[in-house]
Design a protein around this nucleic acid. Sequence first.
DNA 1: CTGAAAGCGCTTACAG
DNA 2: CTGAAAGCGCTTACAG
Lengths: 334, 334
Amino acid sequence: MTKPATIHDIAREAGVSASTVSRVLNGTVPVAENKRAAVLDVINRWNYRPNVVAQGLARGRAGVIGVLTQAMFSPFYGEIYQGIEQGLHGSAFHPMFASGNWRTAEETTALDLLLQRQADGLIVLWGTLPDQQLQQVAGQRPLIAIGRSIAGFERQCLRVDDVQGGYQATRHLIDLGHRRIAHITGLLAQQDARDRREGYLRALADAGLPAEPQLVVEGDFAEQSGLLAMQALLARAARFTAIFVANDQMAYGARLALYRYGIRVPDDISIIGFDDQVGSAYTTPPLTTVRQPTQAMGRAAAQAIVRMLNDEPLDLPTFATELIIRESTALYRN
Amino acid sequence: MTKPATIHDIAREAGVSASTVSRVLNGTVPVAENKRAAVLDVINRWNYRPNVVAQGLARGRAGVIGVLTQAMFSPFYGEIYQGIEQGLHGSAFHPMFASGNWRTAEETTALDLLLQRQADGLIVLWGTLPDQQLQQVAGQRPLIAIGRSIAGFERQCLRVDDVQGGYQATRHLIDLGHRRIAHITGLLAQQDARDRREGYLRALADAGLPAEPQLVVEGDFAEQSGLLAMQALLARAARFTAIFVANDQMAYGARLALYRYGIRVPDDISIIGFDDQVGSAYTTPPLTTVRQPTQAMGRAAAQAIVRMLNDEPLDLPTFATELIIRESTALYRN
DNA sequence: CTGAAAGCGCTTACAG
DNA sequence: CTGAAAGCGCTTACAG
């Protein structure tokens, strides 16, 4: 367990000062060709890598973009990470992740961790942190939020149009001829769940269809709640031929409930989800759903952070959802 | 964008030296009660948080465990992360993730990133890095590998018994009365895929069943390859009534192929996967599979790293797989 | 072009 | 118990 070489070791071996080694490392200032070659030679021979932590301290810039996420392992966030990595590529900044799991206390811990590790900028993905906490951070360093708003920092909040998404999903069902359309909502404490429901209601209203409270039940975005919600719906008197489920995970649960009851999809009931999770193309039948441009959103957020760090002006685009038609929805037939 | 307070600011305001502030922060040495109170007061009032990067530099310990993973967003790795976080909890170390995506070049980049950020220890999850590269790192700092071996460092490699897992899966099918059992393998360039196939072959042999090459086709662990492999199998002359698929993702694809052909699961064909992905309990029908104790493995790896960091002796347990029987497998009926 | 010096924000012997 | 000093591994004016 030998200690790794430092810039001074390299300097000594190459017969120059540490300053010079630093200069050839960073290419900031011209260095005499022979010294440059000597330094490079030692660096290669010793396979020297500068300590980026020390660099960060000296430069006052860690080269880190903190990403406050909710679930390290969700495929949904995964696509956003990919976008972030793409957006950061070639920028001298690297992402650093910490997850809050939708619990305010954990989110606070994760945020502190990112801040203490000197993240130069922050990307906040959804979550339950109060505006006030984020406002304070946003006042101190570049911050972009995805999936939530922060009062006073609206221009740094990148939101997808969930109302439109919910509308699209419901409209698709209506266009297929369905008239009695149920809805399993997400956790209504979350804005996105409320927005999707809002889209559902508007689509019904626009089509002159009545909103039937008995056809709406709240879930919590997890599979099991979709299953339970579908059971509840099936137990009620009100009938329906199609259902909009507020995310794909719950749609899986709902679909399983139908399977258990021997109700066919899409022959008896059409089902549409939201998110287009990776697995959704391989469910039986493949799930019709509404896609959020996750990767593009991640990329935009990363690019925006870099622009802020460089004091360049910001102009976040608006992100629209996209209907992905697969095989879980079909024409209504009487 | 005011600069955050430093330890000197706190010291000045509290009327003590920076050393004293440091001492109350770390609780290493007794500090007079009145000064301690004064310091704590300023810290709270200013909401001061020490710069952990600077702490790490001064201490020679970053407090970071690097986790070299393959896919940031896979639920499978996600469970391992959870285990790692649990194992690190309360240990003064935090995980830091970088992903290699099963590409040697990217894995090298990710490893470098972790090393440059001064990770005190490393947990390597699967991957394609040559032994030599990892041996070098393992010679310099604590390293634990999950899912792969490193020559000369076997005691630091935590492996799950894939042969046993493949055996269990196949044996389950045999116990249900199946005699003609197909197998979709993983990418055979990977050891785990070869081991699972080995388990399959051994189970057949132990039951006195012939190994039929026409019943085995290679996949690449992704959904689409499972679908394609199943189509290939169905196109062949050889019939089968059950199939062991080397992971759940491919099992989803294989199941979709059967759906398209109108072949019922498990009535016509039984199917068993491997991994017990989160979604597998909600497929139709819910998937029988073999579970790896992912969370326990992550926890063990994290604890082992901490032990190594504290120069305590190591004794990694062996991890066994577990059969999870759901509804995609059934008794063979003629 | 280049070295010595100061500094980034901390910790930790050292001396009292 | 406590402060001044040196040091962690770098960078960057400053002076030449």
